[in-house]
Amino acid sequence: QVLIFDTDENFQNEIDSIDSIIKSNILGVILCISGGSNSEKNIKKLDDYSIPFVLFDRELDFYHDGVFLDDFKAGFLATEALIKENHKNVGILVGKFKHKNMYNRFLGYCHALKTYDIEINNDFIYEINLEIEDGYNVAKDIFSKANNLTAIFSCSNLITLGFIKYQNENNKKNNISIIGFDNPDYFNILNLNISSISRSISEIGSIAAKMLFKKLDGNAKHTQKIIITPTLKLNGSEKLKE
């Protein structure tokens, strides 16, 4: 049997889920943390009860088994692509910095700007929750200001969806270029044609499962961290608007 616990980005839900896992005598766990460094306490619970686990998507400063994306490179590739389309004022919509993957995407964004001698503008940095509503609200805020922002790197498909929702509802679709993160099937179904940083979710899941099985079999002789390389898929949304 496979059990799935959805924390919905809520740290208390993560605590409750870990407690349920321990009470249910579950053999092993594949975990995407929701509480940033605070999640180390929950991971310690798994260790205390000798429950093997593998992290994915979000790593910690502490060294644990896991499979992660090269988020720094992802942030760099997306920002660089916008710069190469002659965007000088590039913003970023990023999740909370307590999540290391989000912070690393932000660092990649900053490095790309510095590489191309573009000054970092704090007014173009939006640290928000990974929710459609937050993407919608930040779009509302951006379009209400008289700034020179011409392009956005959105670090979450939910944020991207909220941002586009506001654009469509307010006839702002062609005002700001965008590169998103991940390109779920429903983006294509809706003909959104969003350029994005892409990764193989199935590959990440498969690697994480194999790592966990090795730990369950006692064949994992050392801690292992696997980094997946992101790819950039351009569909035209990155181009400078006329």
Rank of each mutant, 00 (worst) to 15 (best):
S39L: 12
A146Q: 13
L31C: 08
Y186F: 15
G95F: 05
D48P: 00
A209V: 01
K114W: 01
D123F: 10
V2T: 02
D182A: 15
S156H: 10
I125R: 05
N10H: 06
S154Q: 05
A139F: 05
I118Q: 12
D134R: 13
I142V: 08
L55F: 09
I21E: 09
K165W: 00
S206K: 10
T160W: 02
N25T: 01
F97T: 12
A74R: 06
A209S: 13
P184R: 06
R105D: 08
L190H: 00
I33V: 10
E80C: 00
D71I: 09
F56H: 11
N129I: 12
D71P: 13
L149S: 06
K84G: 04
D47W: 00
F213Q: 06
Y109P: 09
D6S: 07
G66C: 06
F163H: 03
I194S: 01
H99G: 11
L234G: 04
L3R: 11
I128W: 07
Q12R: 00
K241N: 09
L192K: 04
L113Y: 04
D61W: 07
I179H: 09
V94E: 05
I179Q: 08
I189S: 08
T115D: 06
G36P: 03
D185E: 13
Q224R: 01
I21K: 03
L149I: 14
I18V: 11
I152G: 05
F153E: 02
K214H: 11
N13Q: 02
V90E: 07
H111F: 15
S20F: 03
N101I: 02
F76K: 05
H111E: 11
E14F: 11
S195N: 07
Q224M: 08
C110F: 02
